[in-house]
Simulated scan of single mutants.
Amino acid sequence: MNILTIIELDNSEVEKILDASIVFQEETVYENVISTCVEGFKCNRTNEILDSDHAMEKVFVMLKANHYIPSEIQDFSYELSSCERIKSNTPEKDELPKMVSISFSQCV
């Protein structure tokens, strides 16, 4: 039997684990529709930009170190949410994607 586990983290939780801020990239899809996705992470201490793969590997390692993920798990996948939203004259920060998912499976 294979058990799939999904851990959902709020953006702020990921930023806290990494001590980094999420960098969003916006692209105008249509005249009034904007697509927003995660471009990477900016380290708060060094201003270094981490690519998403490297950053999520760090999150995975930290979750294992804190026993949220069993130590024997080696492989994982992740999903950084994106969204499409209507362009507004007063863009709200809360319209940005808010969740990150990490998943892994184990045989029992």
Score class of each variant (00 low, 15 high):
T90Y: 13
G40N: 02
M1D: 15
D53I: 09
D53Y: 09
E8I: 04
T28E: 05
C43V: 07
S105K: 07
L9E: 04
A55L: 03
K93L: 06
L9H: 03
T36N: 02
H54L: 14
E13D: 01
I3G: 07
Q74I: 12
E31N: 11
S35H: 05
E72S: 14
V29I: 05
E79S: 05
N11H: 02
M99C: 05
I17H: 06
F76E: 01
V38R: 07
E72I: 12
P97W: 03
P91C: 08
T5L: 03
K16H: 14
E57H: 09
N2W: 15
D10W: 10
D94L: 05
A65D: 09
D51H: 10
I34D: 03
D19R: 07
N44Y: 09
S21F: 00
E48M: 01
F24S: 00
N47M: 14
A20W: 00
V23D: 06
H54Y: 15
H67I: 01
M62H: 15
L96S: 02
K58F: 04
E57L: 10
E39M: 09
V61E: 15
Q74D: 14
V61S: 14
S21E: 10
E72L: 00
G40S: 06
C83I: 12
P91T: 11
E26M: 14
M99Y: 03
T46K: 13
D75H: 09
I22D: 06
F104G: 01
S81T: 00
P70N: 04
S105L: 11
E72H: 15
I17N: 13
I6L: 07
I7L: 06
D19L: 01
E72D: 12
D53A: 09
E79W: 10
H67S: 10
L80T: 06
N32R: 13
M56P: 04
Y78I: 11
I17W: 09
E26Q: 13
E26N: 12
E95Y: 14
A55M: 09
S77Q: 09
M56Y: 12
I49H: 04
P97T: 08
Q25N: 13
F41V: 12
Q106G: 00
L9A: 04
E8Q: 00
G40L: 08
A20D: 00
I86Y: 15
I3K: 10
V23E: 04
S52T: 14
N89I: 15
A20N: 08
F24G: 02
I6K: 02
Q25G: 06
C37P: 05
V29Q: 02
K64W: 00
E72Y: 15
K58R: 01
F104K: 08
I73N: 01
G40K: 03
S105C: 11
E13M: 06
E31L: 12
